[in-house]
């Protein structure tokens, strides 16, 4: 294996304004194929804004952005074919069953009936949800729903999956299990772009960027960041960075 890294997301000078407020202030970064890229920041730092722009849900104010080799301005539909997305708002249909949700999203991504049946069986087996096949989503506990939502988001084997605070509101054990699922996806070659504000999760990422007030304050591997700031864990890295505001730092 060569060390040459292929980029899957390129962001140059991304700006997103809401009126006078700059939610994303001149972002520049790259995400490499196959990595788990952590996008950290406090609440309101602008993480969700960036992720929605990269998914083609929101249009940026300015900047050059390529996702999976396609341009964000006029190739959003091609991008959408190659990505998966799981939002912080739970987003499966609650009033239909586990299998019916899988079938619907499989159908939307153009999988054949046979493929849907096959992947659904495989997915429910891996998640240990076989007995819940015909249960309504609304009857499942939150942790299970999130695992299922993630699996449905990568049902069509996308090149890249965006997870927007996927572990919000669940206990540490379930969060740990969720990260096992993320590793599994990464092993299958899916690039993972994940936002979180749990700093212990940042340790699991290959590289992390830390956002403060709409700007990227720092970006590197967790160990490099810990070395740079001379601290033991990512939590302390985050506290140090968040305290030195980027504009004071210059």
């Amino acid at each position: 294996m060569s060390e040459q890294k292929e980029t899957i997301i390129t962001v140059r000078n991304l700006v997103k304004k809401f009126g006078n407020f700059k939610a994303n202030d001149n972002l520049n970064f790259e995400v490499f194929k196959g990595e788990i890229f952590g996008f950290l920041g406090a609440n309101g730092a602008g993480k969700t804004t960036t992720i929605k722009i990269l998914c083609g849900l929101w249009a940026p104010t300015s900047g050059e952005i390529k996702v999976a080799g396609f341009d964000i301005y006029n190739q959003t539909e091609q991008i959408k074919r190659n990505i998966g997305y799981m939002s912080q708002k739970f987003s499966l249909y609650e009033d239909i069953t586990v299998f019916e949700n899988i079938r619907l999203f499989g159908g939307i991504y153009g999988l054949s009936r046979h493929e849907i049946a096959h992947r659904a069986a495989d997915l429910m087996h891996r998640l240990d949800l076989e007995h819940s096949r015909d249960k309504l989503i609304s009857s499942l506990p939150l942790g299970w729903r999130q695992k299922l939502a993630f699996s449905v988001a990568i049902l069509h084997n996308p090149k890249l999956v965006f997870l927007d605070e996927p572990t919000g509101g669940v206990d540490p054990v379930t969060r740990r299990k969720f990260w096992d699922q993320i590793y599994e996806a990464a092993d299958r070659g899916i690039t993972v772009f994940v936002t979180t504000h749990y700093m212990d999760e940042a340790e699991y990422c290959d590289r992390v960027s830390i956002m403060v007030d709409g700007r990227i304050a720092d970006l590197d591997t967790p160990s490099a960041l810990k070395g740079k700031y001379g601290v033991k864990n990512m939590n302390e890295v985050f506290l140090k960075i968040a305290r030195i505001k980027p504009d004071q730092n210059n």
Binding site: G84, Y85, S87, K89, S91, E94, I108, Y109
Partner: peptide
């Protein structure tokens, strides 16, 4: 309101 519209909007539908 439920957020499912967003999930649909990120698909190539």
């Amino acid at each position: 309101e439920l957020g499912t519209a967003e999930q649909i909007n990120v698909t190539p539908i």
